[in-house]
Design a protein around this nucleic acid. Structure first.
Length: 320
DNA sequence: ATGGTTTTTACTGCGTC
DNA sequence: GACGCGGTAAAAACCAT
């Protein structure tokens, strides 16, 4: 590899730890965290990049210790590249480094010393890098299968990287964590998929997904609010033969219930399923049965029964 | 680990087609 | 009789403590 020498002294190795800035996101009011290797301040909740040019000397070298970031951030200013998609990962900036020297000679040096320091850990670095690529590939694949938009994948990637940087991968499988992270990202983006749905396109079973998910959420302090039942309505209704009117009523029922605060603690999917069922009952031309709804929503008929009664009651519909 | 809550499983009874 | 629905009891799963 390179034959560059650099002064060796360093003090801020430990700054690597995640320094979280406690500020709030302007969009969703979630916590912001600093993604150092990216030189960005990112919202935990929505993935919004609040500030991207945090390139002070600090981040500059920092970009270095995290493998893949290195590639990206090395090139000029850490741009808006929230996330590279897989394609970008092929960039290799190693050579550039010296070449760039003229411009950022001092920081360059620091960089170099960093390199020395980290050289020791090269092997693990490398492992991490592969790890990340693998994971991002998986995330991409699963996101496609779940029809999740690019924004979600980006968020997932951000979170995954955080997980990686915080050494959360120790005992777990890459698959498991990628899946968990994607699941989390989907929820954050208000495009929740159920655990079953996600597990279905993943290579890990639901149990492992669940474990990994909890773990990641806890360790990273992700703040994920319960899914909105309404976001499931369309998909449940879509698999049923249901009029638009019924779907409308379903939503209506949910929002009424929401105002009354009846929803807390109940499974969002169950509520959505119940609402769809109720919507079908209240409108003409729908032959929904509890069995059908239960089938497509993966909820038991019992829960649907319970929920839809509650919904009707909350809405003040005289049951019939 | 424990306890409280929700969901599931399994079963039963009822009315209707 | 089969089907859709409703209720129930016990078990399982979940969550915070």
């Amino acid at each position: 590899m390179r034959g560059i020498q650099a002064p060796s002294t360093t003090n801020e190795t430990q700054r690597t730890a995640n320094a979280t800035a406690h500020q709030r996101c302007s969009e969703c009011d979630d916590r912001l965290i600093v993604d150092q290797r990216q030189g960005e301040r990112v919202c935990v909740g929505c993935g919004l990049v609040v500030e991207e040019d945090l390139i002070d000397p600090g981040p500059e070298w920092r970009a270095f210790n995290s493998e893949e970031n290195e590639q990206r951030s090395r090139v000029g200013s850490p741009r808006t590249v929230l996330l590279h998609d897989k394609g970008m990962s092929s960039k290799i900036d190693w050579q550039n480094r010296d070449a760039h020297g003229n411009t950022l000679s001092t920081s360059q040096r620091e960089k170099m010393q960093r390199l020395r320091t980290w050289d020791e850990r090269f092997r693990t670095r490398d492992a991490k890098s592969r790890n990340l690529k693998h994971a991002l590939g998986e995330i991409d694949r699963m996101a496609s299968a779940l029809e999740l938009p690019g924004t979600v994948r980006e968020t997932a990637s951000v979170v995954y990287r955080q997980a990686l940087d915080n050494d959360l991968l120790r005992g777990r499988s890459i698959e498991g964590v990628s899946t968990a992270v994607l699941y989390a990202a989907a929820r954050q983006a208000q495009l929740p998929r159920t655990l079953d749905e996600v597990a279905a396109v993943s290579r890990v079973d639901e149990l492992e997904l669940k474990r990994a998910y909890r773990y990641v959420v806890r360790e990273l302090d992700l703040e994920i609010q319960p899914a909105d039942p309404e976001s499931y309505v369309a998909r449940i209704a879509g698999e049923l033969d249901i009029t638009n009117e019924a779907v409308y009523r379903a939503r209506e029922l949910l929002s009424i219930a929401k105002e009354q605060g009846i929803l807390s603690g109940k499974s969002p999917v169950g509520l959505a399923a119940a609402a769809v069922y109720a919507g079908g009952l209240l409108t003409d031309g729908n032959d929904v049965t509890q069995a059908r709804v239960s089938e497509v929503s993966e909820m038991s008929e019992v829960t649907i029964r319970k929920r839809y009664r509650e919904l009707l009651e909350a809405a003040g519909v005289t049951d019939n």
